[in-house]
Amino acid sequence: MVSVGDNAVMTLTPAQEDTWLVIPLFDEAQVVEEVLREARAYFPHVVCVDDASRDDSAARARAAGAVVVRHPFNLGQGAALQTGMRFVLEATDAAYLVTFDADGQHQPVDAAAMVQRARDEDLAIVFGSRFLDDRTRPGWLKKLVLKVAVWLTNQQTGMRLTDAHNGLRVIRRDAATRLDLRQNRMAHATEIVLQLGRTRLPWAEHPVHVLYTDYSRTKGQSLMNSVNILVDSILK
C-alpha cells in the first residue's frame, strides 16, 4: 500500500522524492495520523515499522498513506529502526533516509532542512541536536539526564556530539548500508552513533526543535529507563 504523493499537501518546499522517513511505531494510534499528515507534506514516502502495537496504530498509519512493516511481536525501538532501514535499502532506491519519532515531537521542517544540508554539504549523516539553539525546553532533570547521556555517548564512541538519544537523523544510503543495530531496546541511540562514527563518513549536527507536548511526555522515556539504557550500552 504505497501512494506516491497523491494526497501530499501543497507546500513551498518541494516534496522529497528520493528520501524515505523511517518511523518506529508502538501504540501511537492517538497521534500517528496527524504526525503522518504533517510529515507527508514534506516527505511523501514513509515507512512505519509497527512494533506489534496493541492499538490500531498500524491501520491508521496505513490509512494515512505510509507503508507499514509489522513485527510479529514487540522487539523494541532499535529493532524497529533496523527493520525500517532494511526495508528502505531493499525495497526502494532512496538516496536518503530520515529516522523520525511517531509521537509528534519532531518537526518535519527540521527534517527537510537537515536533508537539504546533507545535499548541499555532501554529508552522509546529519544528527539532530536540541541543544544547539534554545528553542527546545526540557525540564532541568531531563536536561541533566540528557547531558549525562551525551557525555557517556561521547566517551563510548569517541564522537563529539551535543545531543544523544535524539531520534531525528538523516542517513545517506551508503552510511545506512553499514549500520547493523543489535541493541533492540533504547540503547540503540548510542550504538547508532558508534557505528556511524566508525564509517568515517562526513557528518554534522543540525539544530532541531524537540516539542515536548503533554502526549510526548506521557509516552517518553522515564528517567528510570535511563538506568536500563546505561546497562544495555555497557554490557555486550
Binding site: 510479529p72 511481536f73 522487539l75 526495508f87 525495497a91
Partner: peptide, 11 residues
C-alpha cells in the same frame, strides 16, 4: 527471524 518475516510480508 522476525525482521525477515516482517519484511517479506511488507514487500
Amino acid at each position: 527471524l522476525a525482521r525477515e518475516l516482517a519484511l517479506r510480508a511488507a514487500v
